[in-house]
Write a protein that binds this DNA or RNA. Sequence first.
DNA 1: GCGAATCACTTGTCCGAACAAGTCGATGAC
DNA 2: GTCATCGACTTGTTCGGACAAGTGATTCGC
Lengths: 247, 247
Amino acid sequence: MAARHEEIAEALREAIDRGEYRVGGPLPTETELSARYSVSRGTVRQAVAALTAEGRIGSRQGARRVVLGSRRSQSFAELRSFAQWARAMGRTATGEVIQQFRRAATVEDAERLLVQPGEEVLQVLRVRGLDGESVLLERNVYAQWMADAVERLPADCESVVQALYDDIGMIFAYGEHVIDAVAAGAEDARLLAIRRGSPLLRIRRVTTTPAGRPIEWSDDRYVSGTVSFAVANSIGSNPLARQAGQA
Amino acid sequence: MAARHEEIAEALREAIDRGEYRVGGPLPTETELSARYSVSRGTVRQAVAALTAEGRIGSRQGARRVVLGSRRSQSFAELRSFAQWARAMGRTATGEVIQQFRRAATVEDAERLLVQPGEEVLQVLRVRGLDGESVLLERNVYAQWMADAVERLPADCESVVQALYDDIGMIFAYGEHVIDAVAAGAEDARLLAIRRGSPLLRIRRVTTTPAGRPIEWSDDRYVSGTVSFAVANSIGSNPLARQAGQA
DNA sequence: GCGAATCACTTGTCCGAACAAGTCGATGAC
DNA sequence: GTCATCGACTTGTTCGGACAAGTGATTCGC
């Protein structure tokens, strides 16, 4: 954290969590904040824009900004890495590779990974746990240029993202996620030790490098009751979009 | 749409959808865009910041911005209104009130709606359909100051949000949502005409006015396979946060 | 007493400038 | 051929200013 506007944003977050600014109450004006932190109004606006995007404060032209709520849960540790998130929550993540093999890319694979159909891809099936309990079944398909590095990982690798960063400097920069609910199939039920037909929260995503190159796509299924996702939206910006159901 | 930076953002969105900028390819530089649209660099940055937040483009210091993907689905029609979303998808939404009564606020109600425990609230149970098929069970609790207006609505009101806006100018400005999966209970199964234990996608949310005053909280349960949610995240900003499971 | 107009204040938009930090290809040394 | 250096280019950060647009309390007229 170097940028001044990030420091200010963090200071405001902490002030809200401390209760310095009451929920439902007003935030100081831009002019007052710029005086307090000795920065220009533009820098203050960058800071409050971040809080607005997080749903912590509301903003309307002409009126003071309003504190909408304080984040009870750790809002760090986001979608990126299961292990990082677990650690931030004070829990321990485990992982185990059940199946791993190379195959030719299907049309679907090719479309998501921006490669040619028939090109080789690496498919991996992992079960992941939290404090010893299995909570997540992960089906990943990696692009060919990533396959070697993934195959070198130990079968019980705790954090894939971290390991790939340490090994080859790979950064998972962007992700696109589709969330829905499905019933556990036979394989799901067996590997997660739950009953067939149990509800699972399914997240399908495509991850890319900072340069926009697709790395992998994944089908993650969480056991009901173990994990939930939170998102804030405002009349101006809607980070989450609802889509019609289709497989 | 009046602001220049919004016009430019929309122009860029359309250009991406048209394929003018290839997926995986670079966007023009800020300097070039500011020349093309005859605006300052700051205005261009506001425009591209919007696309970055939507996950359409990636941005790194020093390198050109990259097109990450074009939104296939209508990215308008967001979390706000079920009916508005359905209409945008070219489908027709229906709604029917199953149950509606006033009761004293529980501690939980009071916390979410920022009112005193014991104060009167209005609870409503609705079933909503898409093209005649029941897909959503909605349990709402409205704050007292909203109760009269809600009770005046017809039982088969198609769009609650729209009706409340037309009646009393009420605007649903901010929402906080928690998403998980649950099994259908007895009541869920009966009202949605599905088997007990079927997976449901559950969205719990609190909605507030532009001034930050809580209007209602809601527990929405979608039949599996009918609706999914999409969200994009980047290394810099994560609109979606994962939370540990707890009821 | 009550509604309408007024007005100070606050946020939104846009400009132009300067410098810092990072990327990426070209150049050059070995 | 390979690798390090360099330099042009691009995005990130911050400043200061000006005006537009909207809010909310006060004042005023009736």
